[in-house]
Simulated assay, not measured.
Amino acid sequence: MLGTLILAPLAPGLEGMPVITRPETWASLSAIGFVLTSAAFITLFWLIPRVGGATASMITLIAPISSILLGVVFLSEALLSVQVIGMVVIFFGLLCVDGRLFRIGRKAQPIG
């Protein structure tokens, strides 16, 4: 939010004023900007007490992967090898942070 407030006055000078003439464009910008963003934050803050902060924050790492896959499926964008490598790195990082990768083949440790 603070970033928007800081950059919004600078953007027209740097990039030019956007020309939006269709109401559908304003509606989609509003839906993405307000409805979906607020839903994402509500979901994130709902998850934090249930799964913990670290696990809930890992969900944000999946956003680039879903964006790429949605672009490939719905917009017929090309899936580049560097993107696939990035997805593998993200998944491997998620496994490392979560700890599941290091628990494979280990017996459960007794508590106490």
Rank of each mutant, 00 (worst) to 15 (best):
L2F: 04
L2A: 05
G3D: 01
G3N: 00
G3K: 01
T4D: 02
T4P: 02
T4G: 06
L5T: 04
L5Q: 01
I6H: 03
L7A: 06
L7D: 07
A8K: 00
A8W: 03
L10V: 01
L10F: 07
P12F: 05
G13R: 11
E15R: 14
G16P: 04
M17I: 14
M17P: 08
M17F: 15
I20D: 01
R22G: 13
R22I: 07
P23Y: 09
E24D: 11
E24W: 08
T25I: 13
T25D: 15
T25M: 14
T25N: 13
W26E: 07
A27E: 00
S28T: 14
S30I: 13
A31M: 13
I32F: 11
I32K: 03
I32V: 12
G33W: 00
G33M: 00
F34W: 14
V35P: 04
V35E: 05
V35L: 13
V35Y: 06
L36S: 05
S38E: 10
F41D: 11
I42S: 10
I42V: 14
I42R: 08
T43D: 08
L44E: 05
I48Y: 01
G52K: 05
G52R: 07
G52N: 00
A54H: 10
A54Y: 09
A54V: 14
T55M: 12
T55N: 13
T55K: 15
A56G: 02
S57Q: 11
M58Q: 09
M58K: 06
I59R: 07
I59Y: 13
T60P: 03
L61P: 07
L61F: 13
A63K: 05
A63I: 14
A63N: 09
A63F: 09
P64N: 03
P64C: 04
I65R: 02
